[in-house]
Design a protein around this nucleic acid. Structure first.
Lengths: 115, 115
DNA sequence: GATAAACGTTGGCCTATCCAACGTTGGCGG
DNA sequence: CCGCCAACGTTGGATAGGCCAACGTTTATC
C-alpha cells in the first residue's frame, strides 16, 4: 500500500482529515496551509492506497468531499506511533517538565501567529 | 548583486564562512551538514556576486580554499539584520525571559544531538 | 442573463536534499 | 616505486516541497 516511502504531506493530509472530518479539498488545503494543487497530488496517492475516499458533493457539484477510510485511519495510527518514537528520541535530552515547557512556548508562538 | 532573491543556502554558507574562516569546500559542507555538490552551486552564485573567493590550495591541489570577501561580509551583515527583524516578529508573542528559555531548550536539544 | 467567483485539476518553475559518477590529486602498503 | 584506494571539486539526475498560472466546470451575484 502507498509505495514504500512515507511523505510528510501524506501524514499532514491524513492527520488533517482525522482532525477536521470530511471536507472539501480546497477547505482542507486552507486549513493545512497547503496549495489546492498540491492537495490533489497527495489525495491521488492516498486514494490509490485506499486511505481516503473522494465523494462528489451533492449540494455543490464543484466540490469533492474527502474522508478517511478505515485503512487510512489505521495507517495514520501507525504513523502516529512512529512519529511518537522519533519525537521521543529527539527530545530525549530534555526532562519531562522541560519538554512541556518547550511545547508550551512553541504553542504560544504558533497560536498568536495564526490569529 | 546576486540576483534579487536571497536563498537560505546563501545565508548558511556565508554565515559558515564567517564562523569558521577560510576552508575547503568539502569541509564547509561537512560542518554545515550540506552535500559537497550543493555547496558547489551556492559558491558559484556567491562567487558571481563577488561575495566569496575560491583559491587553489597550494599544499593539496585537490582542495579549493573558500573565503569571505568584504562584499560578502557586508552582505552577510545585511542579512543578519533582516533575519533579526524577522526573528523578533516571530518571537513577539514571548517575553524576553520566555525567549531566552526557548533558545536554551532548543540549544540543549541541538547540542546533545550533535555529539 | 451576464459577470464574477470558487472548485478540482494540470503543468510549470524553483529551492532543497540526496545520490551516483567522473577526472584529478594525495596518501599508503606491498 | 607502484598500484590501489580515498578525498577533492564538479556534473547530472531523482524526488519532495512550495508557489503560481491556466483551464473547464459549477455556483453565486448583480
Amino acid at each position: 500500500m502507498l509505495g514504500s516511502t512515507v511523505l510528510r504531506s501524506d501524514f499532514a493530509v491524513l492527520a488533517g482529515l482525522e482532525e477536521f472530518g470530511p471536507l472539501s479539498q480546497a477547505e482542507l488545503g486552507r486549513r493545512l496551509g497547503m496549495d489546492r494543487s498540491d492537495i490533489v497530488a497527495v489525495l491521488d496517492r492516498l486514494q490509490a492506497g485506499e486511505c481516503v475516499e473522494r465523494t462528489a458533493d451533492s449540494l455543490d457539484r464543484r466540490r469533492k468531499t474527502v474522508a478517511l477510510t478505515d485503512v487510512g485511519r489505521s495507517y495514520l495510527n501507525d504513523l502516529d506511533a512512529q512519529l511518537g518514537q522519533v519525537q521521543d528520541a529527539l527530545l530525549e535530552p530534555l526532562t519531562a517538565p522541560e519538554r512541556a515547557q518547550l511545547m508550551a512556548l512553541l504553542g504560544q508562538v504558533l497560536d498568536k501567529h495564526s490569529n
